[in-house]
């Protein structure tokens, strides 16, 4: 469920450039599918607001924005 919710948030943050289905099926980084830095900022804001967490934006930390599985583990671990 969390994974699907996050995929929907990726779709909303990218204005549909990447659909939820594409995010769920992705085998490459989300940025390669068209998730821009603007969309990443929207995603960060949406996830932080909904789950009450705060992203680590260090170089290693931002990797979770590129991979739905990693994002799911991060949110599940932090929430």
């Amino acid at each position: 469920m969390l994974r699907e919710r996050l995929a929907a948030m990726v779709a909303a943050a990218s204005d549909g450039t990447v659909t939820a289905a594409e995010a769920l099926a992705a085998t490459v980084p989300l940025s390669a599918l068209g998730v821009t830095s603007l969309a990443q900022m929207r995603l960060i804001d949406a996830v932080e607001s909904e789950f009450g967490i705060e992203f680590d934006l260090s170089r290693d930390g931002v990797g979770v924005l590129e991979d739905l599985g990693a994002l799911e583990r991060y949110v599940a671990g932090a929430a």
Binding site: S31, S37, Q40, M41, L57, R59, G61, V62
Partner: peptide
Amino acid sequence: RPAALRAY
């Protein structure tokens, strides 16, 4: 990329 996100 991460530096830009931190800046934003």
